[in-house]
Simulated scan of single mutants.
Amino acid sequence: MRKQREAEVFRITGARQGLADDVRGRQRRYVISMLIRTLSVLLTVVLWNVQRPLAIVTLVVGALLPYVAVVIANAGRENAPSAPSSFIEPPVRPAIGPADTVPEPRHSRPDGPVADHS
């Protein structure tokens, strides 16, 4: 009978995304933020003589968005909220029952044969 090794079993479902995918996602978020900033600056120019309060709001958004976009883009890799353990315990094999449940034959004992004195 071969002796089975207790191998470690690793779960990969909690793995983070690859570094290239992470960088691509950050770049995409930054570009979208800069597009929104460009639109807000253009709206500021268009609305300046038409509706000045709204133009001031778009100017503030256009001024603050680069800072927010850089902070969001450099926030780092995502954290798994509750990453599962990477180690799974091997299944427990049922043990053989206690030795006293098996009846011991009368004629053989560890200290020698039983003498019948009848």
Rank of each mutant, 00 (worst) to 15 (best):
P90V: 05
V57E: 01
V41P: 01
R5T: 14
V68R: 14
V114D: 03
W48I: 04
G25F: 04
L19A: 08
V70L: 15
A73C: 00
V71N: 07
A115D: 14
G76V: 04
R109V: 08
T58E: 01
R106G: 11
L42M: 09
V46Y: 06
P66T: 13
L42P: 01
V114K: 05
I12M: 05
P53H: 12
L65Q: 07
P91Q: 12
G62N: 09
I56G: 00
Q4H: 12
M1S: 11
G76W: 03
V45S: 05
R28Q: 09
L64N: 05
A15P: 00
R28D: 05
G112D: 12
L42T: 10
R2Y: 05
N79L: 09
Q4E: 11
A80S: 03
R28P: 00
I36W: 00
T58Y: 01
P94S: 09
V41W: 01
P113A: 06
A63D: 01
Q17W: 07
G97F: 02
V45L: 02
A69K: 00
V57Y: 03
D100F: 07
P94L: 03
L42C: 15
R16A: 06
V102S: 08
P53D: 08
W48Q: 04
D22A: 15
G18T: 15
G112H: 08
P110T: 10
P84L: 04
V102N: 08
V9Y: 13
R106I: 10
Q51K: 03
Q17P: 09
V45N: 05
T58M: 09
E78T: 05
V57H: 07
R28K: 11
R37P: 00
I96P: 04
Q27S: 03
E89K: 10
V92S: 10
H117Y: 08
D21L: 10
T38A: 10
I96A: 14
E8T: 15
P94T: 11
R2S: 14
I88C: 00
D100M: 04
A115K: 10
L43I: 12
G18W: 10
E89N: 06
S85T: 13
V46W: 07
R37N: 09
S82I: 13
S40A: 12
H107G: 11
F87G: 02
T101I: 13
P91T: 12
Y67I: 08
P98R: 13
E89I: 02
A115G: 10
I36F: 06
R93H: 04
A20E: 12
R93P: 01
E104A: 14
G25V: 01
A99H: 02
I32Y: 00
P66W: 13
P66F: 07
F10S: 13
I12D: 12
V68H: 08
V41E: 06
E78F: 05
R28M: 03
L64S: 07
R93C: 00
E6Y: 09
P90E: 02
I56D: 00
G18M: 11
S85Y: 04
E89Y: 11
E104G: 10
G112C: 14
D100R: 03
M34P: 01
V46I: 08
S108N: 08
A75N: 13
G97M: 03
L47T: 06
I72W: 04
S108V: 15
D111S: 06
Q17R: 09
P66K: 10
V114E: 07
I56T: 02
N79A: 02
T38L: 14
S40Y: 01
R16H: 08
I96K: 08
G62V: 07
R29L: 09
M34C: 05
L47W: 07
Y30G: 01
S86T: 05
R26G: 05
Q17C: 12
